[in-house]
Amino acid sequence: MRFGFSMNAFRQYELREGIEALSEIGYDGIEILLDEPHLFPGTATDEDIEQVLTWLDEADLTISNCNAFMLSAIEPSTESKAAEYNRDTEDFHHPSFVEPAAHDRQARIEHTKNALETAAALGAHSISIPPGGPVAKGISRNVALEAFLEGLREVAKTAERVGVDVLVEPEPLLLIETSDDFLELMDRIDSPRVRCNFDAGHFYSVGEDPIELVETLGPYTPHYHLEDIPADRRHEHTQLGEGAMDIDGFLEAVEATGYDGFVTVELYPYGETAKEAADGAMQYLEAHGWV
């Protein structure tokens, strides 16, 4: 089991700065943000990709995953912006796979296909994507699920062609929230390239025990996200050891499966103090004997 850190906390930094910082702190891996301001698949050139690969080689860092979940480079249409939601949503969720407007749904699909191509060029094994998205008022869950399945089947073709996994990441307040939601989705998707980005904090936030889910979702999981979550289980990514999750128990459960891939720490709300957050997480992992 190896540890990475997600660059979505480093959006106020140049990509090279983030790479160098994580190398100095001692991480083995890095989750590349496939969005502005780092490496947006819609504009990234072959030269850009080669430059990133050079930086990673110099820093001795391996790509743990490519984050195609967050999306700020594409503005949703006026129609989707005008939609109302039953719950608060973050700007980077839009445009989603389940937007009211078909052209916005297609924009997310095309971005995901481009992200898969970019990940393949980087030599990455996977990208993570949102589990549908927030569902607008007036749209039933069944209608939203069908829209998500339609988009997922389209991007799965690209995933199979380029040999990169597309990892659905269940998240509170979005279409696919729970482990049961995810397993239902798997029953309706026939592609070996569609799998799970297991975010421990997300499952904890929806009232599940991520430790118990390690065995259940293990066959679908080639990559994990880790953060702490407050005791009231609100979806707020918190520094390791500063919330209520049993971080060590979770890592013990993952280790017991023989998993030898990456656990990526994801602390995107710490944008003002990204280096300090990455260092603090590493200090926790070192103090608890994980690295």
Rank of each mutant, 00 (worst) to 15 (best):
D246G: 08
D88I: 10
D279T: 13
N67D: 14
R161K: 15
D209H: 13
W290M: 05
F182M: 04
G261E: 12
V162Q: 11
G29E: 01
N197V: 12
R108F: 10
P37K: 06
L61A: 03
D199G: 06
E208N: 11
D187E: 14
A101M: 10
H223R: 05
A120K: 04
R188S: 05
N65R: 02
T62Q: 14
N8K: 11
Q51S: 13
E212W: 03
A256W: 10
A120E: 12
C196I: 07
F92V: 08
L61G: 10
Y220M: 10
F198S: 10
G132R: 01
L152R: 08
L226P: 03
D165N: 13
H38Y: 08
D46A: 06
E212N: 08
H223A: 11
I139N: 00
D187A: 14
G18A: 13
I63W: 06
L217R: 07
A147E: 15
E184T: 14
E154C: 12
F182R: 02
T45S: 15
F198A: 09
F97Y: 12
V52G: 01
M186P: 05
H94S: 06
L167P: 01
K113S: 13
P130I: 15
H111W: 09
G133D: 12
R234L: 11
G258Q: 11
A115L: 08
W55R: 12
S72T: 15
R87I: 13
Y85P: 03
E31T: 02
T54W: 07
A120R: 02
P192V: 05
A274W: 02
P219D: 01
F203S: 07
P130Y: 13
F10M: 10
I109S: 08
P37S: 00
N65M: 14
I19A: 09
E212Q: 12
T257C: 01
M7R: 02
L34I: 01
L53M: 11
E146L: 08
N67Y: 04
F69E: 05
H125A: 12
G258M: 02
V162E: 08
T89G: 07
S140N: 04
T221E: 03
P131T: 07
A244C: 10
L152G: 10
A102H: 04
D91K: 15
T112K: 12
G151W: 02
S80I: 04
H202E: 06
G4H: 05
I19F: 04
A159I: 00
E276C: 12
E276V: 14
E160R: 09
E236F: 07
D199F: 09
H38T: 00
A102P: 09
L116S: 06
L285M: 12
R16T: 09
V168P: 00
S191Y: 15
A68T: 04
A124K: 06
H93Y: 15
G280W: 03
S128N: 13
A231S: 13
E150A: 14
A44H: 07
F3V: 09
E150F: 03
A119Q: 04
A120L: 07
E177Y: 01
S96T: 09
D104L: 02
E110P: 11
L183G: 06
A231V: 08
I30M: 12
M186L: 02
P76T: 04
T89D: 02
T112G: 07
L39Y: 06
I30L: 15
E99W: 09
T43Y: 10
T264S: 14
P230W: 00
L175C: 06
